[in-house]
Design a protein around this nucleic acid. Sequence first.
DNA 1: GGCTATATGGAATATGTGTTCCATTAACCG
DNA 2: CGGTTAATGGAACACATATTCCATATAGCC
Lengths: 279, 279
Amino acid sequence: MAATDSAQQLREAILERFDELSPRLQQIGRYILDDPNSAGVETLAVISDRTGAPPSAIVRFAQTFGFNGAASMQRLLKDQLLAARPESGYHRRAREFLEGAEDTPLPGPVDLLAEFAGASALALEHLLQSVDHDRFEECVAMLREAETVHVAGFRRSFPVAAYLAYSLQRGGKRAILVDGIGGMAGLQANRIGKGDLLVGISFSPYADEMVSLAEHVAQAGTPIAIITDSPVGPVAKPANCLLQVRDTEVRGFRTLSGSMCLVQALAISYAFELTKISA
Amino acid sequence: MAATDSAQQLREAILERFDELSPRLQQIGRYILDDPNSAGVETLAVISDRTGAPPSAIVRFAQTFGFNGAASMQRLLKDQLLAARPESGYHRRAREFLEGAEDTPLPGPVDLLAEFAGASALALEHLLQSVDHDRFEECVAMLREAETVHVAGFRRSFPVAAYLAYSLQRGGKRAILVDGIGGMAGLQANRIGKGDLLVGISFSPYADEMVSLAEHVAQAGTPIAIITDSPVGPVAKPANCLLQVRDTEVRGFRTLSGSMCLVQALAISYAFELTKISA
DNA sequence: GGCTATATGGAATATGTGTTCCATTAACCG
DNA sequence: CGGTTAATGGAACACATATTCCATATAGCC
């Protein structure tokens, strides 16, 4: 078997011969295709852990593809990793964007991707500073004490709400996504009980559904946590706890990175408190 | 010993104390500042060769900055390079324990938020390099040519799909979110026409709905674009265009930052091509 | 120039790594 | 159902690596 001499060739070889590989070797091949960087740098024990395949199988895999051992294969992948980034593309593009480079009249798709990545990273950078730490912990406490958590978000905020509901469920919390499908937001709202919690996510321009939902729930005396961009917005008033997030904007499209990151952290914090108590 | 816990902090620490370091240690510090990637991955012997400093000096350098040894420092730099999966969970804990780690006893909510923000930012930083540029542009072209775009994603991928559908609509594209509510994914699939496009988003463990949906649509001859984490996963086969994304992981919870950013960029790129043509 | 304190390199060591080999298991086919 | 082949996991091994330790060199100071 002729030894592979470039990382790209190796990838292609694995793809080509993938079907005829044994299950174990497929397992290892999949890992290398999915994450060639880790595969090239991590120790065999770590790879073994992540793939579930014993070290000897990894060596066998490498030999199957013409290498002397796993070490040779890793050298290939490692070189590829190091060669690929001499302070490359991203930083330059991101910087150009942040400096307000108007000199690129026709940004291609990849440029836009770079812009967006830069803007998102920027949003995350400011997230820690803009979010009130005490409020954040307070919000986690509210999650903990709630019987059931109802999560609501419309239009642009809907994906964020969906993810929060999903994550809370995965963390063992009873969570319901108020999606308002078929105009049933009102009906769903009526099912929010006294010991429950409503988490509302809404940004300017605020969806009417969210505003009325929050006011309605507030009148029932149910606790409300709100994630929004302004403490004086219409959805902020009924909130018992308010988390302020400021997302960045690119060419008229606002990022979701900040909000997404925030709700992810919320869900994880909740899940983590459980394990801390049980431990 | 005040242990550094992020690569950026280490860089700053080296810069700050640089002048008061001994010549040899400066030599090593310079190398780490110049090429942190190699410094994190290469063996001590190699670094020794390149810097001219003996291995023991490298160890001493690491200890000067609060690490137990060179290995700990390299782990930090390596994680920065790989971005995803900062040597997750079990192994790191075990090692920290064996090394007598006194830190990270119990991370509070704010710590988790910080961790998450950091991990997400890193994921974004590496997104450009991990995404195949040609494929990305190809995918935008497919969006442009499609009559109607159907977006599908289940479980964890649902928020991503929801946002892509929303963004495309805002960008003037006829887009439909295949949400499978009430088990109607099958019915919705039948409405996907020949000139349409299916964008499927799915990550391991792959939802059965997505796999069968993709296969079903592929048989009808409809073009398919897939956003996933593995080129050999079950959803990858029917794809005409495949975008590979590797999301970061924090304490067992995977981030959505990479995928979200990618679909946002997709939608914007599409919208932008329209304005370019009309301009 | 002697003395002290610090810096340094290299040999010895201990730990961890990749690799080999073989017993065992599973799959396949007659 | 027996026999053959391929696949697999794990223990033993050999190797390389990071680390420690100490003898030596260097610089600073009285």
